[in-house]
Each structure stands twice: as C-alpha cells, then as structure tokens.
Amino acid sequence: MITRELCVGRGAGPELLFRTLADPTRRRLFERLCREGEQTVSGLTAGAGVSQPAVSKHLGVLKRAGLVRDRQAGRQTHYRAELRALDPLDAWARAMKGFWEARIDGLEDLLNRMDQ
C-alpha cells in the first residue's frame, strides 16, 4: 500500500528512506535497478510479481523519495537507481555503529575494572 506520507518531496532523510524501502516490492525493485542497471517499466514488471500499474506506483514512490530517476525515450520510461540517495541511511548507520561501539567499549572497561 502506498501511503500519502511517502509521496512528499525530495531531500529524503532516513525516516522517509526507511519507510519507502520497508515495502518489500519497492525494495526488490530498487535492488534490481542497483544490480541490473537502468530498466523500463515493462522490464521491471516482468520479474516483479505484481501488475504494471502497481510497479509504476511503486516507482513513483521511489522517485519521490529520490531513490530512482527516470528518463523518457520515445514511448518508454527508463528508471535507474540513485545510489547517492542512500547517503542519509549510510550516515545514520555509521552514527549508530559509533554509538554502540562506544557503549560496548564502556561496558568492557567497566567489566575490566570490576575484575581487578
């Protein structure tokens, strides 16, 4: 299901990206574009397991989140992944990794002091 909040603007932060990619169909479409490169809607529909209108709607949500770009070539629309759109997720993951590494290091220091 495509919710209204997923249809808001570019410059997506981690929250919008997580919500957008939480849908398994959208995630599979995005992963295919990452792995296989630019494709048409009909090419993506072939392996999606959902109808062409559903694929088009999912691609629209991915586009509004900044995860894909499209270009017209005649009657066909070609989509490609925008990998830089994942930068906010990467930054969030790095921050969380640093946070938890610091917490674990602090716990390790405490346990070492308790052993002495």
Rank of each mutant, 00 (worst) to 15 (best):
M1D: 13
M1S: 13
M1K: 10
I2F: 02
T3G: 05
T3R: 11
V8K: 03
V8Q: 06
G9V: 07
R10P: 13
G11D: 04
A12P: 04
A12C: 09
G13D: 14
E15A: 15
E15Q: 14
E15I: 10
L16E: 03
L17T: 01
L17W: 07
R19Y: 02
A22H: 14
D23R: 05
T25P: 04
R26F: 07
R27V: 03
R28K: 08
R28G: 06
F30I: 07
E31D: 06
E31Y: 02
E31K: 00
C34G: 01
R35Y: 12
R35F: 05
E36T: 11
E38S: 13
Q39Y: 06
Q39L: 10
S42W: 05
G47H: 10
G47P: 02
G49Y: 05
Q52D: 11
P53I: 11
A54M: 12
V55M: 08
V55K: 00
S56P: 03
K57R: 15
L59Y: 00
G60M: 04
V61F: 02
V61D: 01
V61M: 06
L62Q: 04
K63D: 06
R64W: 04
R64K: 15
A65Y: 00
A65P: 05
A65I: 08
L67T: 08
V68N: 01
V68G: 05
D70A: 14
D70Y: 09
Q72T: 12
Q72K: 13
A73H: 06
R75C: 06
R75G: 13
R75M: 07
Q76H: 09
T77A: 10
R80Q: 00
R84A: 15
L86T: 03
L86G: 06
D87A: 10
D90S: 10
D90V: 11
A91P: 01
W92L: 15
A93C: 07
R94Y: 06
A95D: 08
M96D: 14
K97N: 13
K97S: 14
F99P: 07
W100E: 14
W100I: 13
W100L: 12
W100C: 11
A102P: 01
R103T: 12
R103Q: 15
R103D: 15
I104W: 14
D105I: 05
G106R: 15
E108M: 09
E108N: 11
D109F: 09
L110P: 00
L111Y: 11
L111M: 15
L111H: 12
N112K: 06
R113N: 03
M114V: 05
Q116D: 14
